[in-house]
Amino acid sequence: MIAGAYAVPSVLIFVTCVVLILVGAVGVITVKNPVHAALSLILTLLGVAVAFVAQSADFLAAVQIIVYAGAIVVLFLFVIMFLGVDTRRHVEIEPLVGQRAFAAVGVVVTVGGLITLMAKSHWVSGALSVSNGGQPIATGQGNVQQLGTAVFTTYLFAFEATAALLIIAVVGAVLLARRERAVASEDVGS
């Protein structure tokens, strides 16, 4: 940690993010109980929300809490409760020999390559788009205003397409989860 070179609050916020995100993420992939995995996922999502606020994405941080922690994780928990908690982990069974070792090597190579590539290109490079005219990203209400302007002008078509996507997802989920029963049979019980 390079002390002194950077403002202390921003370093503290970053360290908080790192702790929340990494503890939660490691929890998701290591704990046995799926309920605990879902709770670890909430920890990671909170950490990402803190990182969003620290990088002046206030609206997205709020959406992150509302949509992810409030809806998606609750959906996960609902399905876990519906199916019953399954704590079998099959640690001893490894159908593909050396799967974990290969996965670890592949992930390390991928992440290492990614970081090397970004470092070689001075981390951030690329041209600005025209949507914001190069103004700095505002926080608070200004952030909502900028994001709303971008979504409802430049990205209007994509925004409308998400409406169709959500409808399709809802109809698909209802069809998948519906209990099939014979229409012709007389019995009304399940």
Binding site: Y68, S129, S131, I137, T149, A158
Partner: peptide
């Protein structure tokens, strides 16, 4: 979001919205 802040370009945040 990090790229969005660094490049001062709101498009990154708009894409995050769609990813969500």
């Amino acid at each position: 979001v990090t790229f969005s802040r660094t490049l001062s370009d709101i498009s990154g945040q708009a894409i995050v919205f769609f990813v969500m």
